[in-house]
Lab assay of single mutants.
Amino acid sequence: MSIQHFRVALIPFFAAFCLPVFAHPETLVKVKDAEDQLGARVGYIELDLNSGKILESFRPEERFPMMSTFKVLLCGAVLSRVDAGQEQLGRRIHYSQNDLVKYSPVTEKHLTDGMTVRELCSAAITMSDNTAANLLLTTIGGPKELTAFLHNMGDHVTRLDRWEPELNEAIPNDERDTTMPAAMATTLRKLLTGELLTLASRQQLIDWMEADKVAGPLLRSALPAGWFIADKSGASERGSRGIIAALGPDGKPSRIVVIYTTGSQATMDERNRQIAEIGASLIKHW
């Protein structure tokens, strides 16, 4: 058993032996400061991975655009179909130039040979490839079927209504393609630790998130040596930015963190910096 498999397999085991986890309101002070700095709403939640207890939250039940963070949920739905014998990670999917949409750094290189379902999930999560996400959405029946999958998990909040890139429109008060921090954190925890997916599929999902290559300026920039993080970021119109993550010290995840912001006029660099500073406060007061 690899170190990674050891880590995921023991998450339920550690729940019975973990020390009490204490919240630190200092992080919420930073979240509120980020709102002031960005001139935008910020949603935040910090969840204990083992118990599911909410440690801190700010606007946990307000809607925010999901942006590309939905791609983790999408690959969770794909893995659920794999577990049920309805899909194979090794199945190759062929597509054409007409299928390519904006920001497809991986799929645009494989027009001649296509990509496997496994490769598409990797591209969608680690590189946020939009065509990969659309191709995967097609395999499960489209955005409405992803919403149905989430409903069956008990998440009646999170919804996907459109495809890439239209889902990134982020119109104020538009509930399409949105979630709430509390709903996203709970759903992510179920995917990573619950019985919905097999152990192998849970491991695969967290491996893809751990290999994320496009979230460096966010929480990863504040991470001390030896800490673990598996994450997925997102960005969209109207100053929207977000990240969902499982992270913790000693090389294993122990908390879920979800951060969303929307409605800012700030630059992408400034949005990144504010999220990184929230992460730094979280780690300092861990």
Rank of each mutant, 00 (worst) to 15 (best):
F6L: 13
V8F: 15
V8E: 11
A9D: 07
A9V: 12
L10T: 14
I11Y: 15
F13C: 14
F14S: 14
F14Y: 14
A16S: 15
P20N: 13
V21S: 15
F22L: 15
Q37P: 05
Q37L: 12
A40L: 06
A40P: 03
R41S: 08
L49S: 04
N50Y: 14
K53L: 11
I54G: 03
E56K: 06
S57E: 10
S57H: 08
R59W: 02
P60N: 07
E61K: 13
M66S: 03
L73Q: 01
G76A: 14
A77D: 08
A77G: 07
A77K: 10
L79F: 01
S80D: 09
R81N: 08
V82G: 04
D83F: 00
A84H: 12
G85R: 10
G85T: 06
Q86K: 15
E87R: 00
Q88G: 09
L89G: 04
L89C: 04
G90C: 10
G90S: 14
R92P: 07
I93Q: 04
S96R: 15
S96E: 12
Q97I: 14
N98G: 13
D99Q: 13
Y103S: 06
P105A: 06
D113T: 14
M115A: 05
L120S: 02
I125Y: 00
I125T: 04
T126K: 07
D129S: 01
D129W: 00
T131I: 03
L135N: 00
L136G: 00
L137M: 09
L137H: 00
L137G: 01
T139M: 08
K144H: 14
K144T: 13
E145G: 14
L146V: 08
L146S: 02
T147P: 06
D155G: 02
L160V: 11
W163K: 07
P165Q: 02
E169S: 12
E169A: 10
A170T: 13
I171F: 14
I171M: 14
P172V: 11
N173M: 12
N173K: 10
E175I: 13
D177L: 01
T178M: 01
T178I: 01
T178W: 01
T179M: 00
M180A: 14
A183N: 08
A183Y: 08
A183E: 08
A185V: 04
T186G: 12
T187M: 05
R189E: 07
R189L: 10
L192I: 13
T198R: 09
S201F: 13
R202Y: 03
R202W: 02
Q203A: 11
I206C: 11
D207E: 13
D207S: 14
W208G: 02
E210T: 09
A211M: 10
V214I: 12
V214C: 09
V214D: 04
G216K: 08
G216A: 10
P217Q: 12
L218M: 07
R220K: 04
S221R: 12
A222S: 14
L223D: 02
P224E: 04
A225L: 12
A225Y: 11
G226K: 08
G234R: 02
G234S: 00
E237A: 06
S240Y: 07
R241Q: 03
I244A: 05
I244V: 13
A246H: 02
A246E: 04
A246D: 01
G248V: 03
D250C: 12
D250I: 07
G251F: 07
G251T: 06
K252M: 11
P253M: 14
P253Q: 06
V257S: 00
Y260C: 03
G263R: 08
A266G: 09
T267L: 07
T267H: 09
T267W: 03
D269I: 11
N272H: 04
E277R: 09
E277I: 11
I278V: 06
I278L: 06
S281P: 05
I283K: 03
K284H: 12
K284E: 13
H285P: 03
